[in-house]
């Protein structure tokens, strides 16, 4: 039992793993084929922009969300969890293999994306902010953990997949739109004219002043790397919490 459960894990999830790998290679090829990285129009470029996101959703919806519900729905947990390997060890091993595999794919795809495609746009939002490779990898970990935990909670494949899709998009949008600009306390300027050039306004107070503006909150653009690491940490923390939740839900059923 050197690589315990490796063969079984591969047999059960090979279809999704092969699909993920094929997508990773396709997107990587496209990224390497791009000659003009400043223009991102055309089908090849569309694939490269969507590349990391499609991988993330594939992992969350088709790999992690059905992992536990399929065992419950087909009754195979009765078989899988009544052998020598305990249910919680079964889960730890499977998650270990699958998460390693998809994180490797994600590292490849997002590192290439980060290097090759460099869109010039608003530094704190799509697609520039999220183009940072560690952020993308953290999204994949989060999508996996979210799918797994929702599967453990609902025990229904389709329901878990649907909730994972909605949950992932809502959390991502909420963090991007609401939380991100306050990772560090914003700086303040009297109006837009005196705000430093390389900064992004994150809040405007209206009142007595030029153009009816009484003050501006802004984040200097040189904070972007710190913010990207903070977002990476945030999603990795969420992922860890969800993995522990899924593990606890399975472990709770163990008797011996």
């Amino acid at each position: 039992m050197n690589l315990a459960l490796a063969q079984l894990t591969w047999r059960q999830h090979r279809a999704v793993l092969i699909t993920g790998l094929a997508w990773t290679l396709l997107v990587s090829g496209c990224l390497l084929a791009i000659s003009d990285t400043s223009s991102l129009a055309g089908p090849v470029e569309t694939v490269t922009i969507g590349g990391p996101t499609v991988l993330t959703l594939l992992v969350g919806l088709f790999l992690a969300a059905p992992l536990l519900p399929r065992e419950y729905e087909q009754g195979t947990y009765v078989f899988a969890w009544s052998q020598d390997v305990t249910a919680s060890r079964w889960l730890r091993l499977k998650v270990g293999y699958l998460l390693s595999a998809v994180l490797l794919m994600s590292v490849l795809i997002s590192a290439l994306h980060d290097l090759r495609a460099s869109p010039v746009s608003h530094p704190f939002s799509m697609p520039m902010f999220e183009g940072f490779a560690p952020v993308q990898v953290a999204y994949v970990a989060f999508a996996f953990a979210l799918g797994l935990a929702l599967g453990a909670l609902t025990r229904r494949t389709l329901l878990a997949m649907g909730l994972t899709l909605v949950g992932f998009l809502v959390v991502r949008a909420f963090v991007a739109a609401v939380c991100r600009r306050f990772y560090l306390p914003p700086l303040h300027a009297a109006n837009l004219e005196v705000m430093p050039r390389d900064s992004t306004a994150v809040g405007i107070q209206f009142g007595a002043g030029p153009h009816g503006i009484a003050g501006v909150d802004y984040q200097p653009n040189d904070r972007v790397p710190s913010f990207q690491w903070i977002e990476t940490g945030l999603f990795l923390t969420l992922a860890a919490g969800l993995l522990v939740l899924a593990w606890w839900l399975v472990r709770r059923r163990e008797v011996r």
Partner: peptide, 15 residues
């Protein structure tokens, strides 16, 4: 799974 693969699963899940 084929029966052969079920035996593989049994082998992997047991000491």
């Amino acid at each position: 799974f084929t029966p052969a693969e079920m035996l593989m699963a049994g082998r992997q899940l047991n000491e």
